[in-house]
Design a protein around this nucleic acid. Structure first.
Lengths: 363, 363
DNA sequence: TTGAAAGCGCTAACAA
DNA sequence: TTGTTAGCGCTTTCAA
């Protein structure tokens, strides 16, 4: 049985390409050869027109464009990249903690904007602090030959990226510094920002300040933890280990931990919540305990609507758009041949005083 | 001058591939040929081992794997896809309003999770309701031969996607129904959800209910607008056109519009904010006017921390995770050969009563 | 079980 | 200005 020939079908008969009438489905995509045949020009002429190379007569340009439109031709980028010398794919890989987390999403968008200006497409993936997922994503992106990779790394030993770097993949670390690997990085000043937050509470007279932190395995979480100790030590305030909770993976865990502290014999007079989801958990706990006006709270990383809560939440804000933009620019600079020594770019944080962090102790 | 040969360099001499000592930078990536040469086997044998095809002796498998590891070989997916019959790229394109918007980001994450389970990588891009950006992204993703495309469309006439669909690209629309194109869609019940929100306010006795909406050019915004009229008509409540504001593109615009309404001669007794950013704008306006306890508010789409505001914000919640998951599953079903008629899947919304929507009129 | 040859859709290099 | 040939890194086909 011979299947029907329907409109729009590409017919290749004796090397001649023609267009049928009908409205078939699942046609093969037309190739440059098809366009060349229909326009009755050489393959290379089509390539020149499609890529905007000079040196094609207006007449042939018109014929090629007309044929391309007729066939609804869309070039195959992968095929071109394969042969092209230097073989850029015009893609970037972005590896985030979670594309749905507001901080990650803001980074993503900033990177996308820089990339879009160069017509570079962006792969994104979520790692959830799982080093295996990170490696899987890196392997995939490498197999796709992304020109650049922006990573918020979950892993510790980053030397497995060396081969990719040497193969010409530009790499930038975001939010965390690289270990055992020489690449650029853009990070918030986690330690100093945290010390500032805690110092702010200490300045109001707080001494029993709880620290709620993310996975201790995560470098940025450790730095924020260290900032807490820095400030406490600078004020000669003793650290009560029972007020230090780490490894809180989401708002729920943070809420429970905060509740436990509030219900203990000698509760904290203030909280330092070292991450956005943790801040949300602490806010919920304070509400449940109806202590939001008596126990102080400073969060690290800003939270939407934090200014409209009662009391409004004081935070140390990061600047994810600036971080993402800088990271993308570094990536493109390296791709463009920048061979200068790698650097770690530190983006300062901002203390935003709103109310929750200014509640005095013993109220 | 002859450049130094350093460790790890791939040397191709007389067709023989060997490994040098040193720590060179910018090596060419090893190819299957290099692995084959080092392992002293045929090219196809390497291909079989890398792709896990059966029928290779254990001995040769070991030799190939060892050589691959030694060279830090990473296969080039694009090259494989080019020759492979049916040519799947194992990629998806996701076109969103803004990857940083919480609703879009939640969709994105849900799609990513379904894709990751199949080891499919995801391109994402933001359109900002600009049809030109949509077309540019679609063209790029088509040029990259994504197997599937999930779009929150900004454009109106979607027939330009027909050629891609016919070329075998699976397509699903999210949040909006396709016009002039036969593809699957997954949408919230915008109209009924909005009618329910407005009906809720009418049930409390409100008659002067303001509608604040997104770009009227956007289909989902129009449906929410229609839902408002449905409910008003059902209650035989007159619509005051001065209480209907559209084309609000961000929280700031929504805040100004709400302020203007509140300061007018006969202000509304309730607001229906038909989108998450608009809801935030209205909340800010009500706070500024100190009317948050006197003017009711129901929002469409939930907002983080809405439950902790004073008063807590009543919303009609969408289920972005469910929408995204369903959309991705439809995409994969089509790729797997599902030829059943296309459908528009409607995901119901949920009214979450929290307080702001239960403020009676004339308070 | 193994591998040589052809070719995917395109660009590079070169010839006309 | 135009076209021809080779070949990118891989998979397919087919022969050994």
């Amino acid at each position: 049985m011979i299947s029907a020939i329907s409109k729009g079908m590409i017919l290749r008969v004796n090397g001649q390409t023609t267009l049928s009438e009908g409205d078939g489905a699942d046609l093969p995509r037309p190739t440059m050869r098809d366009v060349a045949a229909l326009a009755r020009v050489g393959l290379k002429t089509v390539s020149r027109v499609i890529n905007g190379e000079p040196g094609v007569s207006l007449e042939l340009q018109a014929r090629v464009r007309h044929a391309a439109r007729q066939l609804d031709y869309h070039p195959n980028l992968a095929a071109g990249q394969l042969r092209r010398i230097g073989g850029r794919t015009a893609t970037l890989g972005v590896i985030l903690e979670d594309v749905a987390n507001p901080f990650s999403a803001a980074l993503h968008r900033a990177i996308e904007d820089v990339a879009a200006a160069r017509n570079v497409d962006v792969f994104a993936g979520s790692v959830e602090e799982n080093p295996d997922r990170e490696r899987r994503l890196v392997a995939n992106f490498a197999a796709r030959r992304v020109d650049g990779l922006a990573v918020v790394p979950a892993s510790h030993d980053h030397s497995y990226l060396l081969a990719h770097k040497q193969a010409g993949m530009a790499i930038v670390f975001i939010d965390r510094r690289p270990d055992f690997l020489d690449v650029d990085a853009v990070v918030s000043n986690h330690r100093q920002g945290s010390a500032r937050a805690v110092g702010h509470l200490l300045g109001l007279g707080h001494r029993r300040i709880a620290f709620l932190g993310d996975l201790a395995a995560v470098q940025s979480a450790r730095e924020r933890h260290a900032g807490y100790f820095d400030a406490m030590a600078a004020a000669a305030a003793p650290v009560d280990p029972s007020l230090v909770c780490q490894d809180l993976r989401d708002s729920g865990a943070a809420e429970s931990a905060a509740m436990r502290l509030l219900e203990a014999d000698s509760p904290p007079s203030a909280f330092f919540a070292s991450q956005n989801l943790i801040t949300i958990g602490v806010i919920r706990a304070l509400r449940r305990a109806e202590l939001q006006d008596r126990v102080a709270l400073v969060g690290f990383d800003d939270v939407v609507l934090a200014d409209l809560l009662d009391p409004p939440v004081t935070v140390v804000a990061q600047d994810p758009r600036k971080i993402g933009t800088r990271a993308a620019e570094l990536l493109f600079a390296r791709m463009d041949g920048d061979r200068s020594p790698t650097r770690c770019h530190v983006i300062e944080t901002t203390l935003i005083v709103r109310g929750s962090g200014e509640i005095p102790p013993g109220r």
